[in-house]
């Protein structure tokens, strides 16, 4: 194995080669979306059913395009504000995409899109019991994380910052302690990532993957940005595996001064 950079990551027994997951909303066009997915080399994309949910057949053109991307689809329940709404959307997603995977969002606040963690745990339990493999979009709260694992989740997706803000990793302490508490659970930073350096930072913390959408879809050049994120994630992962040095306050010259010739 070379450097471990190309090593695979596993979610619910499925091994994928890329640690980048891309959302499929808000691109200038489906053609740009397809190019961005190709450029990023990502193996998983998320797709939202919420806005098209009135009638199952209505969004089928777009969903067909998503399926044609040739990557694994992780349908999501974006925009759902209640357990019932999220569960119904998940069931519909399973029918449309033929996958037990579901990225579970239960939104508590319409303005900040803050997860509603009580409803999230309840929906996760219901869906897990129904055979779903749940990827919960959650905060970095450890108590909630424990409840989600208890509800049957085998992946956790804490936020970096609120959805679409591009603020990066708002609370690296919380993300770091989550990694330390759950060394064997696949952890994905989901939401809030704005720049490739944010994604690299998440990987350096030891996270298994990064999920983002707006940072690519609304970039000046979405295809170039998709590639930049792929590179940042590879670099961050390689850096994590290579073992970064510990920071310290005392300066230490990288070139030894002892024994240097005195030219004065």
């Amino acid at each position: 194995m070379t450097l471990g950079v190309s090593e695979e990551v596993e979610f619910y027994g499925v091994r994928v080669a890329s640690r980048l997951m891309l959302g499929t909303a808000q691109y200038p066009s489906p053609a740009v979306l397809a190019d961005a997915v190709r450029a990023s080399g990502c193996a998983i994309v998320t797709a939202s059913l919420r806005r098209e949910s009135g009638h199952l057949r209505e969004g089928q053109d777009f969903w067909g395009l998503i399926r044609d991307l040739g990557v694994r689809v992780l349908p999501n329940t974006a925009g759902c504000h209640s357990v019932k709404e999220a569960v119904t959307t998940a069931q519909m997603a399973r029918e449309v995409f033929g996958t037990p995977w579901i990225k579970l969002e239960v939104i508590g606040d319409a303005d900040t899109l803050h997860p509603e963690v009580f409803g999230l745990v309840e929906a996760a339990r219901t869906l897990s019991a129904d055979g779903f493999e749940v990827f919960p979009y959650t905060t970095a709260d450890l108590g909630v994380a424990e409840r989600l694992l208890g509800a049957g989740c085998k992946v956790l997706m804490p936020w970096g910052a609120p959805i679409g803000t591009g603020l990066g990793l708002n609370d690296t302490y919380a993300l770091r302690s989550m990694r330390a508490h759950f060394p064997d659970v696949p952890l994905v930073v989901d939401a809030g990532v704005g720049k490739p350096s944010h994604a690299a930072a998440a990987m350096e913390l030891g996270y298994d993957a990064v999920l983002l959408n707006t940072a690519v879809s609304k970039a000046g050049d979405p295809v170039a940005m998709a590639k930049a994120f792929a590179q940042a994630i590879e670099a961050g992962r390689a850096g994590y595996l290579a073992g970064p040095i510990e920071p310290r306050d005392m300066a230490a010259p990288s070139t030894p001064v002892f024994g240097r010739a005195s030219l004065a």
Partner: peptide, 11 residues
């Protein structure tokens, strides 16, 4: 702008 081919009334 909704990815849908439905022309049913405004929601």
């Amino acid at each position: 702008m909704v990815e849908s081919s439905s022309a049913r009334g405004v929601t």
